[in-house]
Design a protein around this nucleic acid. Structure first.
Lengths: 128, 128
DNA sequence: CCTTGACCTTGACATGATGTGAAGGTCCAA
DNA sequence: TTGGACCTTCACATCATGTCAAGGTCAAGG
C-alpha cells in the first residue's frame, strides 16, 4: 500500500507518517524498487493507534511509551493505566487553567457596559 | 532603562521583547549611542499590558487588536467586549475538548483493573 | 509508444511562543 | 585597567503540522 492509501486508511496525514518515521516513532517503512514506501495492514493498524492516541491528546513521547506497552506481551495493565491517569491529570490541569482565564474574562465582560463609550474595565484590568 | 530592567519590570522576557519588536507588535525601541535599546515607563506599561493579555490566553493577533483599542481614545467598549467574549468562547471550547478527552481517559482507566495482567481496555480502545 | 495526470520522493520554509547558546561589544565599579 | 554584568545579533531547537518546489514513477488511454 502506498503512503497515500495508508494515510487515508489510518487518518494520519502523509506528512505526519513521514515525520513519525523520521523521528523514530514508527520503524522505517519498507520500500519498493521505485523508492515508494510500502505499508502493510499491521503498519496501518499502528498508525491508527497513533491517531487515536493523538485524538486523546497524548504527546509524541507518551505515544512512544504506549506503543511499547502495546507490543509488549508481558506488559502490566497497571503501567498503561498510570500513563493514562497521569495524562488525564495533565489534561485536567490545562482545562482548569483555560476555564479560569475564561471566568476572568466573563467577569470582566460583565462589568463592561459594552456600548459606544470608550471606558472599559477589561482594558483597565489589562494595563494593571 | 535597559532591556533587562524592562523585562524585570514588565514580566516579559528579553527574548520576547525583542521578538515582539521584530514582528511589529510593539514599535522599535529607542536606541542609545551604544546600540542598547532604551525603554520608557510608557514602554514598560505597554509590555505589562501584553503580559497580562497573554496570561489571559490571548494570541498575538488578538493582542495587537487590544493594543490598538487601548490607544484609541475613540474606541467603543463594545468592541473590546466582543473581542473578550469571542476569546472566552474559544477558551471554553478548548477547555471542553480537554475535559472530554479527560473523561474518556478516566472512563477507560476505570474499566482497567490496573494490575500485572496485560489485558487492558485502554490499549484496546486505542487500536480500534 | 508516448502523453497525461495522479501519485510518490526529498528538502526546505512557515507557523507560535519561547529557550538557549555563541561571538562579540558596552558599562560601571573597584 | 580589568572583571563581571549587561547588551547586541544570529542561529538553532522545540512540537505538530502545512505547504511548496523540483523531480521521479506509475497506470491508463490515444
Amino acid at each position: 500500500m502506498n503512503i497515500g492509501a495508508a494515510a487515508r486508511a489510518s487518518g494520519v496525514s502523509q506528512r505526519m507518517i513521514r515525520h513519525y518515521e523520521e523521528i523514530g516513532l514508527i520503524p522505517s517503512a519498507a520500500r519498493r524498487d521505485s523508492g515508494y514506501r510500502d505499508y502493510s495492514a499491521a503498519d496501518v493498524h499502528r498508525l491508527r493507534f497513533i491517531a487515536n492516541a493523538r485524538d486523546l491528546g497524548f504527546a509524541i513521547g507518551e505515544i512512544a511509551k504506549l506503543l511499547a506497552l502495546w507490543s509488549d506481551q508481558k506488559r502490566s495493565s497497571g503501567e498503561v493505566r498510570s500513563l493514562a491517569l497521569a495524562h488525564a491529570g495533565e489534561l485536567g490541569r490545562k482545562a482548569e487553567a483555560l476555564a479560569a482565564m475564561r471566568q476572568t474574562l466573563l467577569a470582566l465582560a460583565e462589568q463592561c457596559h459594552g456600548d459606544d463609550r470608550p471606558d472599559c474595565p477589561i482594558l483597565q484590568r489589562l494595563e494593571d
